[in-house]
Design a protein around this nucleic acid. Sequence first.
DNA 1: TTATATAAAATAATCGATTTTTTTAACCTA
DNA 2: TAGGTTAAAAAAATCGATTATTTTATATAA
Lengths: 222, 222
Amino acid sequence: MSDSLPKLAATASSRVFDHLRKDLVGGRFIAGEKLAINALKERYDVGLSPLREALNKLAAYGLLIQENQRGFRVPKLSREELEDIVQMRLEMEGMALERAISHGDSLWEADLLAAAHRLKRADISLDKGEPWEHLHTQFHRTLVAPCGSVWLLRFIEQLHDQFDRYRRLGPKMPTIRQELDEQHHQLVELALQRDVRAARELMNDHIHKSYEVALKRYQEHA
Amino acid sequence: MSDSLPKLAATASSRVFDHLRKDLVGGRFIAGEKLAINALKERYDVGLSPLREALNKLAAYGLLIQENQRGFRVPKLSREELEDIVQMRLEMEGMALERAISHGDSLWEADLLAAAHRLKRADISLDKGEPWEHLHTQFHRTLVAPCGSVWLLRFIEQLHDQFDRYRRLGPKMPTIRQELDEQHHQLVELALQRDVRAARELMNDHIHKSYEVALKRYQEHA
DNA sequence: TTATATAAAATAATCGATTTTTTTAACCTA
DNA sequence: TAGGTTAAAAAAATCGATTATTTTATATAA
């Protein structure tokens, strides 16, 4: 039941990195805004050095823009970029899913079923909302985990973070979520049946539907 | 003739980042070694804060491994990883090249010819060696530049850096380089002719040949 | 008024020193 | 001797203060 990885003792820097990443992905900052470092120091209750280290990492990761001598800003959003991100997701997650299905063993099958189940449970008892996001990420991670490429997984993770900056702009949309949740279970089924072709097609459809949500959010986002 | 981008005044942090990145990619560190931060401070003549910021960025970028409370180390090399990197390069650079060929305008054609020419010149007058690497990177960058995807370009750049950690392990191999250089010019020709299919095939071949070099280097690397 | 220069304030970047944690070394004990 | 404490040294992380740069405000000239 405990976390699979022991996870080294967190440093102030790593803690604020995690926290900031979550907040950036979850839309708690305004796109384009300039970060006031002193304000962040208080907000995250951390010193300047670890904070700056975290900001530097986030910039290298693509969740912040760093400009020499003028600090950090939250990247702007644009429809063009959203489309870029979606196209890349289609290519890369499709590829990863195909490979995962052909390499995944029975342990993977079990993990997948478990992840899907947990996600569904969290969905029914729609509490905090924060846990759902985490389980959702976890599900998609599990789905492609045995693709065999460390770099592919890394890029996909990065793209998910970027995509979620759009998807999580507004409040939830229960209607469409229903449909998307259904697809999660269908994806598991097709994966277990090792139907590479159908699974990839469904994944494309899934990403497209998510795109529609994200686009709507982006267009409405004031 | 001047740089296309004005480039903001460099900070100590950005300078040491660039320098360290070059050294890591160029094989000036031993794979797996633990970085002695105090030694680096002297080596790059920089204070602790900017140095740590640079190291944090490099870790997020994938050129260093960061472990909480125990600093930074140079990632190990492995044949499996090399093969992962190569497979990803095949997929992503192939995709990028196809898109670049269908989107690239006449300005791109000119840039491409210029980049190939400069590379050839640097190759003949085989001086320092350092400039060749830069022109080579620049050529491959130009080749895929108009692919239309910021994220694809970003990933490709990252993969090149990773690949070069293997390719640049040992001394130069003039014999095979000859062959690779020839392919650069053939790639330009096929791009100008807009022969998407042939260009992609040649790119595959090019990456495969580079892989052989990199693999040999890796296996010989003591 | 518009533009340009100057001064003041705010912010970013860096430094030097301190605190915390890990690693190494020395020592004990079964 | 192998295993396990403890103490000392080394290294990593963080803090508080200083320096450099940019931004804002104010004043001056065309």
